Amino acid sequence: MNGNILFIEDDSDIRKVISTALEDEGFVIHQFPTGELALEAFPKIEIDLALIDLRLPGISGLEVVRRLRSITTAPLVILTAFGDSYDVVAGLEAGADDFLGKPIATKELSARLRAILRRTMVQVGEMPEVEDIIFGPMVLYPLRREAIINEIAVELTNTEFMVLVALARISPNAATRQDLLEQVWGYDYLGDSRLVDMQIYRLRGKLEPYGLKNNLVTVRGHGFKLVL
């Protein structure tokens, strides 16, 4: 499954190599050297995913993530130097859904992006367990990717919605971080538990106005569960 990718990278050589490789794999690439140019063009293009280098001139990659997160639910993937824990945490806090370390082989990058798109662009006929989920005052509609609480639509990113669905389906049982990494980020994903922790943190913030923040419970030494 391919898609439209917004790619922001200031290094022209890296940008050309990655863009060409992804286009050869069937992706449509909208490439920009700066966050300013990307944000200016964003309203005029359709994207399924954004790939953002954090170390950009001018507007930082973190600020680009924040601004994009405020206007789109599409997956935001940050590119960071391997081992740069600060960048990873800061990027996730800014609103990124996932991160990839640099340098990365183009074949691996293509496979990872395709996996991310597969979970957010899954077709109706391919989606298992498509029944609507009623959980107290909340109704989740997997096919529409929509959450309703007390008849009010809750604005969630695709990743936040998928985490919520995964927990609601097994409630009152708990899911480990690895369970969620496999179900939400993909079975072949060698994930980082910080991805899960940040999504849980953001979900609690989204649920708080509806009085459901404390219904998303941390099970010490195990993971998380959703309770009534």
Rank of each mutant, 00 (worst) to 15 (best):
R118T: 04
D132T: 12
A166L: 12
S60P: 06
D188G: 13
M1A: 07
R169K: 15
E208S: 13
V17S: 02
L228M: 11
V165F: 08
P33D: 10
Y187L: 08
L228K: 15
P43W: 14
R118P: 00
S70A: 15
A147V: 15
E151V: 03
A168Q: 12
A115F: 00
R55G: 04
L79C: 09
V139E: 13
I71Q: 15
V130W: 07
E208Y: 06
S70W: 02
G83E: 08
A115P: 02
T80G: 02
L226H: 14
D84F: 03
E146R: 12
G26D: 06
K44A: 11
S12N: 05
A111R: 11
E208K: 15
I29H: 01
V154K: 13
E126A: 14
T20P: 00
M198V: 06
L167T: 06
L49M: 09
D87F: 04
T176H: 02
G95Y: 03
A21S: 14
T176S: 14
G101V: 04
I52N: 01
E46I: 10
I78M: 04
A81S: 13
I200C: 10
S60R: 13
D11W: 07
I47C: 09
V130Y: 07
A81W: 02
I149F: 02
E23F: 03
Y187H: 09
A175F: 08
V196M: 02
E40N: 09
L140G: 09
A105G: 11
N150S: 14
I152E: 15
L181Y: 03
F99M: 05
N2Y: 01
L54K: 00
Y189G: 04
L143Y: 06
G136W: 08
E182P: 00
A38C: 03
L226W: 15
I14G: 02
I8W: 13
E131F: 01
F42C: 09
L143V: 14
L22N: 01
P57H: 07
P142H: 13
D53V: 06
E46T: 12
I152G: 03
Q183K: 14
R67Q: 15
L6A: 10
L22Y: 00
E126I: 03
L212A: 10
K213L: 10
K107T: 01
I45N: 01
T73E: 08
P57C: 03
T72W: 14
D10I: 11
L180G: 03
R69T: 07
V163I: 13
L22F: 01
R69S: 13
K225T: 08
F99C: 05
F42Q: 12
R66F: 04
D48I: 00
N173Y: 10
L22S: 02
N4V: 03
I134R: 14
M121P: 01
R169V: 11
E160S: 12
K225Q: 13
G191N: 08
D13E: 10
P209C: 09
L195H: 07
D98T: 08
E155L: 15
L228C: 06
D97M: 09
P128M: 04
I59V: 14
T80A: 07
G61D: 04
I170R: 10
G221W: 00
I149P: 00
A50S: 15
G125T: 11
K225E: 10
K225V: 04
